[in-house]
Simulated scan of single mutants.
Amino acid sequence: MNPPVPRASNGRWALFAVLAVAIAPILASYLTYYVWKPAGGKSYGELLPVQPVPAFKLSTLEGASASLADLKGKWLLVMVDSTRCEQSCPDALYAMRQYRLAQGKEMDRVERVWLVTDAAQPSAATLKQADGMHIRRALDPVPLPRQLDGGIYLIDPLGNQVMRYPRTAEPRKVIKELTGLLKNNENIG
């Protein structure tokens, strides 16, 4: 008996199968990127263009020179407002404290900053709410985008503006987002 002669068509099908396996991931990636865009990645806060916050003059309430660079290496929750802020100011100070405390063992990576935009002294009640917070007087216009007195800004440890939250934000959503940022960016601060 003669051995069976391999058919040329079997070799072609094997070649097509190998090519299909090699090309399928590339084709799938193009389709996913250009046709079926994934819907994830939504953030609760308003994403800001990630760029360094320009240097500007600050001082302590006592008049000593200060800057945000003094806090480099920490995530900063920044509020900008005058000392005459009404009820929204103490509420925002309390919320910022809660955002930080909710981070548990990671809370040392987060600092709170209140940039005061006028020459007056904060009231004793407001200072009590701001316990442990860095209070600085802005001597120049604050170079952060949008309506300054209506938000809480997040600045990363490299000094870049990242997000803006409204002062009336839902605390659970802000805490969840801040927790995720700290977890996913352990290497930068």
Rank of each mutant, 00 (worst) to 15 (best):
L101F: 13
R84C: 04
T83W: 06
M107D: 02
D91C: 05
K72N: 08
D91S: 14
A95P: 00
M96P: 06
M107C: 04
K72W: 01
L76A: 08
M79S: 13
P90F: 14
Q103W: 01
V78G: 04
K72G: 02
L101Q: 11
A102Y: 10
S82R: 09
R109H: 08
S82W: 00
Y94T: 12
L93Y: 01
M79I: 15
D108C: 01
E86S: 10
V80D: 04
W75K: 05
M107W: 05
W75N: 03
V78K: 04
K105P: 00
S82E: 07
W75T: 04
Q87M: 13
L77W: 01
D70C: 02
D108N: 12
L77S: 03
R84E: 11
K105W: 03
Y99W: 14
Q87Y: 14
V80Y: 07
E86D: 11
L76P: 01
G104N: 10
Q98M: 14
D70Q: 15
S82G: 13
A102V: 06
L71V: 02
A92C: 03
C89H: 08
R109Y: 10
A69K: 05
V78Y: 03
K105N: 11
A69G: 01
R97E: 07
E86V: 07
L71Q: 05
L93K: 02
D108F: 13
P90K: 11
E86N: 05
K74I: 02
V80C: 10
C89F: 07
R84F: 13
E106P: 03
C89R: 08
D81T: 14
L93T: 00
S88M: 05
E106T: 13
R97M: 08
L101T: 11
D81N: 14
R100P: 00
R100T: 10
L77H: 05
S82D: 07
S88V: 08
R109C: 03
M107L: 11
K105R: 12
A102M: 10
K72Q: 15
L77P: 04
A102H: 09
Q87R: 15
L77A: 03
L77V: 07
S82A: 12
Q98C: 04
A92S: 12
C85W: 05
V80N: 06
M79P: 04
Y99A: 05
